[in-house]
Design a protein around this nucleic acid. Structure first.
Length: 291
DNA sequence: AGACTGCCCTGGCGGC
DNA sequence: TGCCGCCAGGGCAGTC
């Protein structure tokens, strides 16, 4: 499940490998579902139109907002819109030689004149690819972009912002951390890790958090993201960087995925609860409920 | 407005 | 060994 550090790692790799090379063709792989023909292109509705937009384009730069990737496109010196990608759970962007055998769940191929291919591979098919025409703002087409809260590694993400945003909310802090409209880019792994590091029980109501707890939480969120970023993302799940290499962060997970194992800090057994349809892992001693 | 729920999707795993 | 059903979860639509 790529979260901010993984998406950022992919972005950096793409900026090293894919810029200023003409896209000469591509392919969108469809498969026949009971519900009909299915593919990963969210926009435009026509696959042909998508591929036509890709042909002849070059990528100027890759950007990231939350967990969204955005490639700025140019054709013959003119702006030609944006290529947007969201990896969701299992999506991967891989920079490969054309003769590389197609992975089973390959959804999109973009062929570059330089003799390389960018492939979007996505086992569970939650991931999405968009083309946004140059005369539209990306958030008009990629509507999720418009709803994103501040970047957690920016100055906008302050203790004061957290206090102002959470002080009247009654829901659990864990579900608030996963809400992309409050903070952009956190997912289940780093939310659980940040709550452990700040000693906060995931079921604590937002409005019950003290200012010192919010300070701890803010610090912990920044720390887990920066630590993971430094290692090139987590080794968990399906994450691979563009060159097909896993990250290095997993060894230091305090609670995520450790239900039934002993807390690395106090030896109590790590527990798991369901919150908003997502599992939350926590240490019942290090993250005692505050009233 | 805020807070829920269910849905999409596939592979891996537990249980029998 | 085989089969069934459950589980993983990001974002979005729908509901109250």
């Amino acid at each position: 499940m790529p979260e901010l550090p993984e998406v950022e790692t992919v972005r950096k790799g793409l900026n090293q490998l894919t810029l200023e090379q003409e896209i000469e063709g591509g392919e969108v792989l469809c498969d026949r579902r009971p519900s009909g023909l299915s593919h990963s292109i969210a926009h435009p509705p026509s696959v042909d139109e998508f591929l036509q937009a890709m042909r002849g384009a070059r990528i100027v730069q890759w950007h990231r907002r939350g967990k969204y990737l955005l490639a700025q496109l140019r054709r013959k010196g003119n702006a030609s819109g944006w290529l947007g990608v969201h990896l969701r759970m299992t999506g991967q962007l891989l920079w490969v030689a054309p003769e590389e055998p197609l992975a089973k769940h390959t959804r999109v191929r973009l062929e570059f004149k330089s003799g390389k291919e960018l492939r979007f591979v996505d086992q569970r098919r939650f991931g999405r690819v968009w083309w946004v025409p140059a005369d539209l703002a990306p958030e008009k087409i990629m509507t999720g972009l418009a709803k994103l809260g501040p970047e957690p590694l920016s100055e906008d993400f302050s203790v004061e912002y957290l206090r102002r945003t959470l002080e009247r909310r009654k829901r659990a802090i864990k579900t608030a951390l996963l809400d992309q409209s409050l903070i952009a880019g956190l997912g289940n792994i780093y939310a659980d890790e940040a709550l452990f590091l700040s000693g906060i029980h995931p079921e604590t109501r937002c409005c019950d958090l003290s200012v010192s707890q919010l300070e701890e939480l803010k610090r912990a969120v920044v720390q887990v993201l920066e630590d993971s970023l430094r290692e090139g993302g987590t080794t968990f799940s399906h994450f691979l960087n563009v060159q097909g290499v896993n990250g290095n962060y997993a060894g230091v997970a305090w609670v995520y995925g450790r239900r039934g194992q002993l807390c690395r800090r106090c030896d109590k057994v790590i527990e798991r609860v369901k919150l908003g349809g997502r599992s939350s892992h926590f240490c019942p001693q290090c993250q005692a409920i505050k009233n």
